Simulated assay, not measured.
Amino acid sequence: MTTAQAGIQPVPQPTKASTEAVILDVGHGNCAVLRDGNRCVIVDAKSDKLLYQELVTSGVRRIEHLVLSHADSDHIAGALRLLPNDDFEVGTVWLNSDSQKDSRQWHELLALLTALHQAGRLKARLAICDLDGWDLSLENVLIDVIHPTLTDIGHGTGKRGRVRPEITTNGMSVVLRVLLEGLPALLLPGDLDSAGLDQILSRDKEVSAHVLVYPHHGGHSGGGTEESFAKVLCDAVSPDVVLFSMGRGVFRNPLPEVVEEITRSFPDTRVACTQLSENCHVGPVPDGERDYLLNRPAAGHTGNRSCVGTVRVAVADNQLVVEPAPLGHKRWIRQHVNTAMCESSAILPVPRPRYP
């Protein structure tokens, strides 16, 4: 299937080569495009058309790696239409086995990968762990595999055994740390749970990043209190921006206690959601001036559901910048949102310089 056959109308915008990380607003799910010129690495693929639009309009034809953090449908569904698309050349698809996942989409994805691999269209790697190190990297986009471990993928998901703890689908999520032009830009933790976080911290892995895409869309962490998980995670990552990739009207994410803990314990950290949470505003989303939204594909454009929308992280003057910038976004929130959870004070946080 080609992009034209899929009925996709690209949004005109410059296609010059650049280094950037784009966290697409895909509603309830995850998708990040890590771009180095006309090559890229994609991490998770919830949406198909939004991802197609982003790739086509940014001039990407070569997908070096597609990493699927775990087997949940809100992370893999878009891959079923992306991979057979003749408009793109795909290098390697990375994913881990999951003995507990029995969804139709997971079965279809495994069958599709088998067929495409046998046809010589791509390589399929049914194992990705911290021993893979920087193998996903491009020239100006360095990607470190933080989690899971070889032991984790060796035992796979399932109940506690004689030599290992219980490993859930979320606990097996692939966690990636991304550097743009040497600067620690992004931590992509999939749906990492509290057990997985404890394991990462016990191995003293470097996880600091300018932007943290919060695990599990701001939902439950799978152990302990949500406040404790949020504090430990943000202490480790020390993010300037915490982003919740979530869909309005799905699970009422992010949880209020998660946002409250971050804004209380880390007042200099900017908190943003791709779509406007129902915990912040009940009823129709107000219009207001929305010129802060990026001219990039975003699920929230339909039905006026956007909050910060699709987010771009790039390097300018040897510093990391995040778009949309906070000023216009915060102005809209303060004028039109009833009880914005992210508003802990009237002072906008000033991003700290980031160095390798």
Rank of each mutant, 00 (worst) to 15 (best):
L55P: 07
V56N: 05
V60K: 04
R62A: 01
I63H: 05
L66N: 07
L66K: 04
L68C: 00
S69N: 09
S69W: 01
H70P: 08
A71H: 08
A71T: 15
A71I: 03
D72H: 13
S73V: 14
D74I: 08
I76P: 07
A77P: 02
A79V: 05
A79H: 09
A79M: 02
L80D: 06
L80H: 04
L80N: 09
L80S: 06
R81V: 03
R81P: 02
L83P: 10
N85M: 04
D86G: 10
F88T: 02
F88S: 03
F88I: 10
G91T: 05
T92P: 01
T92R: 09
V93M: 10
W94S: 07
W94Y: 10
N96P: 12
N96W: 11
S99F: 13
Q100C: 09
K101Q: 15
Q105Y: 02
W106Q: 10
L110H: 13
L110R: 15
A115K: 08
A115H: 10
A115M: 06
L116N: 00
L116D: 09
A119Q: 15
L122G: 08
A124K: 06
L126Q: 14
A127V: 12
D130H: 11
L131F: 09
L131T: 15
L131E: 15
D132A: 09
G133E: 12
L136T: 03
L136C: 06
L136E: 01
L136S: 05
S137H: 00
L138T: 03
L142M: 12
L142A: 14
D144L: 07
V145D: 02
I146Q: 00
P148F: 10
P148Y: 01
P148V: 06
L150W: 11
T151V: 13
I153L: 12
H155S: 03
T157G: 04
G158Q: 07
G158K: 04
K159N: 04
K159W: 02
R160L: 00
R162P: 14
R164D: 05
R164Q: 13
P165Y: 03
P165D: 07
E166V: 00
E166K: 08
I167Q: 12
T168W: 03
T169W: 03
T169E: 08
T169H: 08
G171I: 05
G171E: 02
V174G: 07
V174Y: 01
V178A: 03
L179W: 12
